[in-house]
Design a protein around this nucleic acid. Structure first.
Lengths: 198, 198
DNA sequence: GTCTATAAGATGATAGAC
DNA sequence: GTCTATCATCTTATAGAC
């Protein structure tokens, strides 16, 4: 959805439309070329507006990035608070790890950030979202001595799979379907629970 | 080891020493600040030489990066060809995933590349080394229908753990010791083998 | 609300003197 | 073998006209 699409023929000025066009263009560009590979001019050109509006509306390139690739953790992922950790893993694998392939620009923000993790600000945002939004879901559901460590191992597995697919582009995992993978992942996670100190 | 260290008092000209000083400085800088966060002037200044020598000796910044963070996969990691995959996982976890903390500049090249994976050339190098050097070790040792997929899942787990420690800096895994982690990882990998189609 | 013009500086890379 | 000087281009960000 470009600026022109949003405002059709009579080229009126519309702050909200311009803003969301910039956001959308930024999401696409950052997804495809990373933070450093994307200039404010590129984004503005894609949106069909002037580059200075980026600073007017968002303050800085960094702030635009943060807003464009912010993660909204889906509401009812595990279907309520007391659901099985295994169900949560399965849901995450389906919803976030295996929902990144289709068209460019649809990749999950987490892996966009991962590819731009050279910048310290991006890394801070990444840590905040991974630990705060996602890992927190697990630590609450796991029991035992090293619950936090096991939660992070599950996170590492999921992030690693997504990384193999989206940045390393390894042959088998990139081509594999969710159905082919879920059983193997479930087995690994189950083993983690059984190995826990009682 | 800086340029000055290598050539002590009488400042003679020494191609080999200059070259290796640049390589060392580049390794440090790229490790700490990533590809885009590092300028050729920074590297040259650290090495105590002029920036133009980078182009004279290496051709380009990209070529210097590739040489500075190239991975040399250790010789006898799994102790011979027919060793247990589990032993290989344990060795990799110890040697590459948990050998990155000490002083800055000692981090494993794989995670340096991961942090600079915004550049397409870096991603190509990363894919080549992960798939070619490391994953190949596993696929040869695994049997069964989806051996390749399971090999990449093991790789995903190891890469994910390294990533949690080196770029996301998640609390539990960053603080955990190799001994605390190896048992849990071994359990996950073992479950993967048992879940294999016979 | 949006644009032109420009500031102010960093970047990778090159030519040629010493 | 090494350095000085410089090119050409790019960057984010701002001031002010329309």
């Amino acid at each position: 959805m470009t600026y022109a699409d949003l405002m059709s023929e009579p080229k009126r000025r519309n702050k909200a439309a311009t803003r969301s066009a910039l956001l959308e263009a930024a999401r696409r560009r950052f997804t495809e070329h990373g933070y450093d590979g994307t200039g404010v001019r590129d984004i503005a050109a894609d949106a069909g507006v002037d580059a200075t509006l980026i600073f007017r509306y968002f303050g800085s390139k960094q702030a635009l990035f943060a807003e464009a690739v912010r993660v909204e953790v889906p509401e009812g992922l595990g279907r309520g608070r007391r659901s099985d950790p295994a169900a949560l893993v399965d849901a995450l694998l389906r919803e976030v790890v295996f929902t990144d392939r289709p068209e460019p620009g649809a990749e999950h923000p987490l892996f966009v950030m991962l590819r731009s993790a050279g910048r310290p600000e991006v890394r801070a945002q990444l840590r905040e979202q991974v630990c705060g939004e996602y890992l927190a879901e697990f630590t609450g559901r796991l029991q035992g001595a090293d619950a936090e460590l096991r939660a992070e191992l599950i996170g590492a597995l999921l992030v690693g799979i997504g990384l193999m697919r989206s940045v390393i582009d390894s042959p088998a995992l990139s081509e594999a379907s969710f159905e082919q993978t879920r059983g193997l992942v479930a087995a690994m996670v189950a083993a983690l629970h059984e190995a826990a100190p009682h």
